[in-house]
Simulated assay, not measured.
Amino acid sequence: MTAYVKRVGDLTEPVELSAAQVAEKMTSTVDSEFDPVIKPSHYAGHTGIDCKTALESMLGTEAYVSHMQACAFKYIWRWRDKNGIEDLKKARECIDNMISSIEGDGQ
C-alpha cells in the first residue's frame, strides 16, 4: 500500500491515461451512462467513482446532508435566472440524496 491513497476505495496505484484515452472514455459513455441532472459526466472522476459517494464517505452523513441542503437551496435560488426547470430537477435530486442518506438507502 502506498503512503498516499489516491482514490476512494482503491489502494492501487492509479493508471495514467493519455488525454486521448480520457476523451475516448468520456465520449463513449456520455450518451448511455450520464444524465445532466442525476449523474453529470463532470462529477464521475477519472475512475468513475461518483462524486456524491466520495463526498458522503469523506464528510459523513450529517455533513453530507447539510451540503445537499445547501446545494438544493442554491438551485432553487437561481432556477429562474440560470437553467430553469433543470435547476429545479437538480434541487429535487439533492433532496432525494438527503432522504436516501438519512434513511441509509445509499445512492
Rank of each mutant, 00 (worst) to 15 (best):
M1G: 15
T2C: 02
A3V: 06
Y4E: 12
Y4S: 10
V5F: 00
V8T: 08
G9T: 04
G9P: 03
D10V: 12
L11G: 12
L11D: 15
T12D: 13
E13Q: 10
E13C: 03
E13D: 11
E13N: 10
E13W: 02
V15D: 08
L17C: 06
S18G: 06
S18I: 07
A19L: 03
A19V: 05
A20M: 02
Q21R: 06
Q21D: 12
V22I: 13
V22D: 04
A23C: 00
A23D: 04
A23N: 01
K25W: 03
K25E: 06
K25T: 06
K25R: 11
M26D: 06
S28I: 00
T29L: 11
T29Q: 09
V30F: 04
S32W: 00
S32V: 10
E33Y: 08
F34P: 00
F34V: 03
D35Q: 12
D35E: 13
D35N: 15
P36N: 10
V37K: 06
I38A: 15
I38F: 14
P40A: 11
H42Q: 11
Y43N: 12
G45A: 09
H46Y: 13
T47G: 12
G48Y: 05
D50E: 15
D50I: 13
C51A: 15
K52G: 13
K52P: 05
K52H: 11
A54F: 00
A54K: 01
A54Q: 05
A54D: 11
A54S: 11
L55N: 09
L55F: 00
L55S: 14
E56M: 13
S57N: 06
S57M: 03
L59Q: 05
T61K: 15
E62H: 13
A63H: 09
Y64I: 12
Y64F: 15
V65M: 13
V65P: 14
S66R: 14
S66Q: 14
M68D: 08
Q69W: 01
Q69G: 08
Q69C: 06
Q69E: 13
A70N: 08
A70K: 07
A70V: 03
C71F: 00
C71P: 00
A72D: 05
F73H: 07
F73V: 04
F73L: 04
K74C: 06
K74G: 04
Y75V: 05
Y75N: 04
I76Y: 01
I76S: 01
W77V: 02
R78E: 07
R78I: 05
R78G: 02
W79Y: 14
R80D: 03
R80Q: 07
D81Q: 05
D81M: 02
K82D: 11
K82G: 01
N83W: 00
N83G: 10
G84K: 00
G84P: 02
E86M: 09
L88Y: 05
L88F: 04
K89W: 14
K90G: 10
K90L: 09
K90F: 07
K90P: 09
K90N: 09
A91S: 08
E93Q: 15
E93N: 15
I95W: 02
D96P: 02
D96H: 08
N97E: 14
M98Y: 07
M98F: 06
I99R: 11
I99S: 10
S101G: 14
E103M: 12
G104W: 01
G106V: 08
G106W: 02
